[in-house]
Computed example of a mutant assay.
Amino acid sequence: MSTGNLKAILSEFDIPQRDYELEQVKYGLINKSYNVVEKSSNKKCYFLQQVDHNAFKDIEGIMHNIGIVTNHFKSQPDAPEHLKTQETISGANYYKSTAGEYWRLYNYIEGHTYYRAENIQLATEAGKMFGQFQNALDGIDITFLRDTIPGFHDMDMRYEQFLESISGATNARKEKAAALIELVKEKINYVKSIWHDTISTCPPRVTHNDTKLSNLLFDDNNHGICVVDYDTLMPGFLPLDFGDSVRTICSTTVEDDTNLKDTFFDISLFKALVTSFIAALEESITGPEIKMLPRTSAYMPFIMGLRMLTDYLNNDIYYTIQYDQHNFDRAANQMTLFMSGVELLDEMNNIVKEIN
């Protein structure tokens, strides 16, 4: 999109009318993002996003949920640092263009991200941040939030989508993915049992639902600043959020690394993460939720690998890819991590028992 068009979008928001430049941000798998820089001071002021309405079918619902959560944070004097939406001239928290594009504007928060935890300090800080964020969400009436992505972590639904993708895939892609397809079919009953045990024993909560390490901002001393990316704020289950954080924080490689022989769970990072996560939640985490934390640590790499494999078989219609086999490489990495999690399950259970 041209600079002129972007500035026209920006003018729809109720912010000081100054001369701004827009710098595209290259990270992120779905939305298009831009830093808004005030030219006179060269200061980054805002963060502009075009929300992908092909990936997200209920953007009004997403922005409704974000409004509920951020307004709740405003009412809490001890709420953690968080993203704040800037209102449009008409008072909404997003703008829909005449072309049907959805835009939102956040305050800019200075910080940096990681794609994998490089040390114990980062894992400890991440567990604390996600635990504190979950604590801050408590008190929101879950019935106020919309289920914007029905079945988001539902293994039964995701497996059906996977089977449909096989039937429509090209022979070349099915042949390339044959070993992964076989692994999914072999392990599906095992992971379905984790899903059903989670939803039958754990209370539904308002959860983030995308707790990867890159959704945390850190300062120059690697102290946590805030949790970002609120697109998936909706009803969910705490152990699944924890498992999703384990997927990126405790892996020895990033999620598209093709070096599979060196891809596994780092148990020392898991111990640091789960210790600080449980401590941050204090009394709000339940016994059944604690019990599920090790199992969901294996579950989440599997379901993410399954979704990436499904997208590969569907000819890459959901996730942004950088090359032709990108989703295949992501899926292979996540399934390798899943197998490592299964192997370490007893050790993870023992760590959680010691903490609790």
Rank of each mutant, 00 (worst) to 15 (best):
C45T: 06
K39I: 11
N209S: 09
F130D: 00
N189R: 13
Q17V: 14
R307G: 02
P204W: 05
Q121R: 11
N5T: 10
V51E: 00
V352R: 00
N209I: 01
K96Q: 14
R18T: 01
G67K: 09
G168W: 06
E182K: 15
N71L: 05
A8K: 15
K26Y: 07
Y20I: 04
F328P: 00
Q50G: 02
A272W: 04
H223E: 14
I181M: 13
K291I: 13
T201S: 15
L216M: 13
I181Q: 06
S41M: 06
E343Y: 09
R104M: 07
C250N: 06
D141K: 09
D262N: 15
V36T: 01
E125P: 01
L313P: 08
E125T: 14
L180R: 06
L233N: 03
F264V: 11
L10P: 03
K39M: 07
T207V: 12
N135E: 14
N333I: 08
D156G: 11
N93I: 15
T336M: 11
E282K: 15
G91E: 04
C202A: 07
A8L: 13
E164C: 08
A179F: 10
C45K: 14
F133E: 01
A172E: 15
L145K: 01
P203F: 04
P77I: 12
A178H: 15
E21S: 15
E283A: 12
T258Y: 02
G61Q: 06
T85F: 10
I15H: 07
D311H: 01
D156Y: 10
V191G: 01
D316M: 04
T232L: 13
F218N: 01
Y115D: 14
T211W: 02
D262C: 03
D311K: 01
T336L: 05
T275D: 07
V191S: 01
A331T: 07
S268E: 15
M292R: 08
L281G: 00
R247C: 06
I149W: 01
L281P: 00
L122N: 00
T232E: 03
T263E: 03
M292D: 06
L180D: 08
D346Y: 07
A177N: 04
D58I: 05
N107D: 13
I59E: 00
I278E: 03
M335W: 00
A169N: 08
S165C: 09
I9P: 06
V246C: 03
L10K: 03
Q334V: 07
F56D: 05
V37D: 03
A92D: 15
E118L: 12
I59N: 05
R116S: 10
T258P: 02
K185P: 01
M335S: 01
F144H: 12
H196S: 11
S245E: 00
F47E: 04
I225E: 03
W103Y: 14
S33F: 04
G224S: 14
T320D: 09
